[in-house]
């Protein structure tokens, strides 16, 4: 990693670590928790949708899995409040293992067919969440025990847990960029048959990326369920969660480290603001779509890659003139 990159990362995390100590505003903390949630989600989605070029629309199924898993285990007691956080790696590992056969089958298809297969997984998961009453509580939902955290700083543990997952997702993303697995995924995205031809173990690499991506997504779902205190199927296995991850990644820039971060930091506050201004009638989704469409028309590859392309072109023109 370059010195500039280290500096950028250090500044980013230092400011996020200090943020909760600088404000006591509940709504601001709440907004940041959701922003970090989507940073972690879109960075995780980017591992498979960005680097490998497999646009999964089924990630919310695993988000819901993490949410229900946490809710079921901690429905009666959360002890001193910390066990659900400590339990998160189990949630991630179980979701990742569960995803291996799904990924193996789904990734035999490509592009739009893969998107359709994965969205089918999402609707199957949603249907199960609604109908497996004994496990999920059906439409009545499933409650999680309330932690004994101080009410004035109630959001802080959730904030830091989300931040830890942001670090994990961005760390994975950075590792992908610098390792052979990242190179393999880029090759797969560029031309899967050629990648196979030069010795890339295509199926293995894709399934590993998918498992890691959904494992992280499930962990985020676990924290979300704990923070919300109640898991309803229409919110836990919600296509809008997947759409959010996809839009944020596309907006900031696919297959980049900072693209999903930027996308989340633009869209989540915008969504919260619009939702506040326009009420709970979901009209905010129209404005949300409008922002996205305009940005995609002006910056089709996402904000960061378009800016970096323009800077590179400018530099080239300058060199040519010199």
């Amino acid at each position: 990693m370059s010195r500039n990159g280290l500096l950028r990362g250090g500044l980013f995390f230092a400011s996020l670590i200090s943020f909760p100590f600088l404000t006591t505003s509940q709504w601001l903390t709440n907004m940041f928790i959701f922003t970090l949630m989507y940073v972690a989600l879109s960075s995780s989605w980017n591992l498979v949708g960005g680097y490998a070029g497999y646009p999964s629309l089924g990630h919310a199924a695993f988000f819901g899995f993490g949410a229900y898993f946490t809710a079921i285990v901690f429905q009666n007691s959360v002890g001193n409040g910390w066990p659900p956080f400590i339990f998160l790696p189990v949630v991630g590992i179980v979701a990742a293992l569960l995803s291996i056969p799904i990924g193996y089958v789904a990734m035999k298809t490509r592009a739009d067919v893969f998107a359709i297969v994965t969205i089918t997984v999402l609707f199957m998961a949603q249907s199960l969440a609604f109908n497996l009453h004994a496990v999920t509580g059906g439409a009545q939902g499933k409650g999680v025990a309330v932690p004994p955290f101080d009410s004035s700083t109630y959001g802080r543990p959730f904030y830091f847990a989300m931040l830890a997952l942001v670090a994990l997702a961005m760390g994975s993303s950075m590792y992908f960029r610098q390792s052979k697995i990242g190179l393999s995924l880029s090759a797969i995205r560029s031309d899967e048959d050629k990648a196979h031809g030069v010795g890339v173990q295509v199926t293995k690499v894709k399934v590993v990326a998918f498992a890691l991506s959904v494992g992280l997504t499930a962990m985020v779902g676990g924290i979300w369920a704990y923070y919300e205190g109640f898991v309803y199927p229409q919110f836990a296995v919600d296509p809008l969660i997947t759409i959010g991850m996809v839009l944020m990644t596309f907006l900031g820039g696919r297959a980049t480290l900072w693209g999903p971060v930027l996308g989340a930091f633009i869209l989540v506050p915008a969504q919260q603001y619009l939702s506040y201004q326009l009420g709970a009638n979901q009209f905010y989704l129209l404005a949300y779509a409008g922002i996205f469409l305009v940005t995609m028309l002006i910056l089709p590859r996402g904000i960061l890659p378009t800016i970096s392309d323009k800077l590179r072109l400018k530099k080239k023109q300058k060199e040519a003139l010199a």
Binding site: K180, L183, S184, S186, A187, R189, S190, D191, K194, A195, G197, V198, G199, V200
Partner: peptide, 19 residues
């Protein structure tokens, strides 16, 4: 053409040494 068009020249060279 056997290069990966969406990858940089450096990355393509690295793919040549993939094994």
């Amino acid at each position: 053409r056997s290069l990966f068009p969406g990858m940089s020249v450096h990355e393509n060279m690295m793919m040549g040494a993939f094994i």
